[in-house]
């Protein structure tokens, strides 16, 4: 994985509910272990990373929740290079209307903030980071966010907004600086969405996915001959029958999941790594460390 963790910005994308937050956190731990100063960025208002990483925040692993409203103010101050002017605008009702109306502006300033966090000399962040990892919104909205800089660069080709958008856009599209990691589950719909996202990313932004992580894969525990014996092993007490049924269920799930995994590998251009299903009620620090080590080994 040297190439991925040596970038400055990693965008973790994927369908809702596939484990983006978990994978982003695991990736952050892996980079921090290598001595990097890492900032994990959450984009939506949900503060899920904090819960997962507390109570022992790592040396070198930081967490930021990007608030679009604050990002907008910071962006304004930077654009205008004047606190007074920024104050005039920020306090103006007309400006509030216009920015609320300007399509994709929220996405643009969010990308701007993320871009800034990934700079060696950031403007708004207090601290300098080696790597920013973004827990991006679900696929569709995630793509809209990635597209915002390029859209603005073309809507406002003259003027500072356009120039700024252009800089963000070229950073995001530079494979030496920015990586895209897409998380999926080994199921029909997440696999389809991943394949479609890869195509859309190529088509809209001429970007490639660096790696696909298939999360929560059931282990293929039983050999064909063992399955036959499980199927033959009827009878017994209620609990024994339940145990056999559970084993067979899991086997069928694992088989279906591996078929989906093969389908994904055939359809996607990006390399596909897997993470095992964790059979713990909730993911805690220990499980995250384990996933992080797996991720480092497999990517």
């Amino acid at each position: 994985m040297p190439s991925l963790l040596d970038k400055r910005l990693i965008l973790v994308t994927g369908k809702g509910g596939v484990g983006k937050t978990t994978v982003a956190a695991a990736l952050g731990l892996a980079a921090a272990r290598r001595g990097k100063r890492v900032v994990l960025c959450e984009v939506a208002e949900q503060d899920r990373l904090t819960g997962m990483l507390d109570p022992v925040p790592d040396e070198g692993l930081h967490h930021v929740s990007v608030d679009p409203e604050r990002a907008k103010e910071e962006w304004l101050r930077y654009q205008l290079k004047s606190r007074t002017l920024a104050g005039v605008l920020g306090g103006s009702r007309l400006f509030q209307y216009l920015t609320a109306a300007a399509p994709g502006l929220t996405e643009l300033v969010t990308m701007g903030k993320i871009w800034d966090l990934a700079q060696l000399e950031p403007r708004t962040a207090g601290q300098r980071y080696d790597l920013a990892i973004v827990d991006a919104p679900a696929t569709g909205h995630g793509l809209a966010m990635l597209q915002a800089p390029s859209t603005y660069a073309s809507i406002a080709p003259v003027g500072p907004v356009g120039r700024h958008a252009e800089r963000i856009d070229s950073f995001v599209r530079d494979p030496a600086k920015t990586g895209v990691l897409t998380v999926a589950l080994p199921e029909e719909m997440p696999v389809n969405e991943t394949v479609e996202f890869e195509r859309a990313l190529r088509r809209e932004l001429d970007m490639a996915i660096d790696a696909i992580v298939v999360n929560a894969l059931h282990p293929a525990r039983f050999k064909a001959e063992e399955v036959r014996r499980l199927e033959a092993g009827g009878g017994g007490s209620r609990v024994a029958r339940a145990a056999l049924a559970a084993a067979l269920s899991e086997h069928r799930r694992a088989r279906a999941e591996h078929a989906q995994l093969r389908r994904l590998r055939r359809a996607a251009s990006a390399p596909v790594a897997t993470l095992p299903r964790i059979f713990e009620p909730e993911l805690g620090r220990a499980e995250l460390e384990r996933l992080s080590a797996e991720l480092e080994r497999r990517l």
């Binding site: 605008l89 103006s92 003259v158 003027g159 907004v161």
Partner: peptide, 18 residues
């Protein structure tokens, strides 16, 4: 008051086209 100012600052911040 200050709306004229807002327009002129907006122009600086966003570019006329937008």
């Amino acid at each position: 008051r200050g709306s004229g100012m807002v327009f002129s600052v907006m122009r600086r911040a966003t570019g006329i086209d937008l």
